[in-house]
C-alpha cells in the first residue's frame, strides 16, 4: 500500500522544501544574473517591430491564446507555434534545441528578467518536422500554397488546380483571398 518509493519521495520533498526555503532567501540577497544572449530569429523581421515585440510579446500571445482556444481563430502571425518555428536553434547535428532550454531564445531572456513560464510544459518546444520543412521551402505563407505543398509532399498533384482554366474567375479570387 505505501511503497518505499513514495516514502523516500516524501522525505526527499520535505527536505528539499526546507532547503529551498532557506536558500532562496540567501540567493535573493546577492545573486547577479548574466546578460542574456539573444540569438536572432530566422528571416529578416519578427512578426511585429522588434522593439514592440520586446515590450509586448506576451500581450500578443495571451490575446492569440484566447482567440484560438475560444473562437477557433487560427491566424499564424501571433501563434506560439510560429514563434517556436522561427526562434528555434539547431545544434551542429542539425537537431532542434528546445526553445525553452536555458540558453535559448525565450529562456535566456526570461531568466534575466526572472520571469517563469509554464507554457512549454504543454506546448511543443520544437517545430513539428513537416511544419518546419514547409516554412524553409515556401516563399509565401498563404494557406493555398501550404495546402498545395502538402499535396506535393504526398505525391498528389491537384495543386496545379490554381491555374485550372475550368475554374471560374470568382472561385479563384475567393481562394486567393
Amino acid at each position: 500500500m505505501f511503497s518505499l518509493q513514495s516514502i523516500t519521495g516524501v522525505i526527499k520533498s520535505a527536505f528539499l522544501t526546507a532547503l529551498t526555503l532557506l536558500l532562496t532567501s540567501v540567493i535573493f540577497s546577492g545573486a547577479i544574473a548574466a546578460e542574456p544572449v539573444i540569438p536572432r530569429g530566422k528571416g529578416e523581421f519578427c512578426v511585429e517591430p522588434t522593439d514592440v515585440m520586446r515590450k509586448d510579446h506576451m500581450k500578443f500571445l495571451l490575446h492569440q491564446r484566447d482567440a484560438t482556444v475560444y473562437d477557433g481563430v487560427r491566424t499564424k502571425k501571433h501563434s506560439l507555434n510560429e514563434c517556436v518555428t522561427c526562434h528555434v536553434q539547431s545544434n551542429t547535428q542539425g537537431d532542434f534545441i528546445p526553445v525553452n532550454a536555458p540558453d535559448q531564445f525565450c529562456e535566456s531572456c526570461h531568466t534575466f528578467a526572472s520571469v517563469k513560464l509554464d507554457c512549454f510544459e504543454c506546448h511543443a518546444t520544437t517545430p513539428d518536422s513537416e511544419h518546419s520543412a514547409l516554412r524553409e521551402l515556401l516563399p509565401s505563407k498563404s494557406m493555398l500554397n501550404v495546402m498545395a505543398f502538402r499535396q506535393k509532399l504526398e505525391g498528389r498533384s491537384t495543386y496545379h488546380a490554381v491555374d485550372d482554366p475550368s475554374l471560374s474567375e470568382d472561385l479563384i479570387g475567393i481562394l486567393k483571398e
Binding site: S6, G9, V10, I11, K12, S13, A14, F15, L16, T17
Partner: peptide
C-alpha cells in the same frame, strides 16, 4: 511533512 507530501 504534509506539505512535503503535497509537493511530492
Amino acid at each position: 511533512v504534509g506539505y512535503g507530501a503535497a509537493h511530492h
